[in-house]
Simulated scan of single mutants.
Amino acid sequence: MAKPNKKGPTKTVQIYCDKCRTILFKYRKGGKGALIKCFIERIVENYTNETCICPNCKGVFARETLIKGTPAYKMIGGKVMVK
């Protein structure tokens, strides 16, 4: 299977918890569609203390998985917001 582009996109977005509006990641996102998954290698800054758990409200916003053989977070619908 094809792996995601190593260099990755240059556009950076901020990902927030939808419940408490706490910033979770700065992420290099490609394309203009909805955020479905985050490849771990594309995360620029990680503001979480525990994996996939919001540091403020302790809500689970994603699940760890392998996508195309690369570690990623699969986002749970309606739990995150992108700006």
Rank of each mutant, 00 (worst) to 15 (best):
G33I: 00
K26E: 01
K7R: 13
Q14F: 00
T10W: 06
N56E: 14
K11S: 06
G30L: 07
K37F: 06
G8F: 13
T65A: 14
C20S: 11
L66H: 12
Y73F: 15
I40P: 04
K7Y: 09
K68R: 12
L66M: 15
T12H: 05
T22G: 04
P9T: 05
I15E: 01
T51F: 01
G69E: 10
I76C: 05
Y73H: 13
G69N: 10
K68A: 15
Y16W: 10
A62S: 02
T65M: 10
Y47R: 12
Y47I: 07
A34T: 14
N49S: 13
K68H: 11
I67G: 01
E45D: 13
T51W: 02
I23H: 07
K68Q: 14
K74C: 02
T12E: 09
I67W: 06
I23T: 09
P55L: 09
F61E: 02
Y47S: 10
L66V: 10
K68N: 15
T51G: 03
Y47C: 09
I40H: 05
F25W: 03
A2Y: 08
T22L: 07
C52T: 10
L66A: 08
M81G: 01
K32N: 13
R42G: 02
F25G: 00
M1W: 04
E64F: 02
L66S: 14
N46C: 14
Y73P: 02
R28W: 01
E50C: 07
V44P: 02
Q14I: 01
K74W: 03
I67V: 14
Y27F: 05
E45C: 09
K3V: 12
V80Q: 01
Y16M: 11
R42V: 02
N49E: 14
K6L: 14
K29Y: 05
R28A: 09
F25S: 01
F39W: 13
T65Q: 10
C38M: 14
P55T: 11
A72C: 15
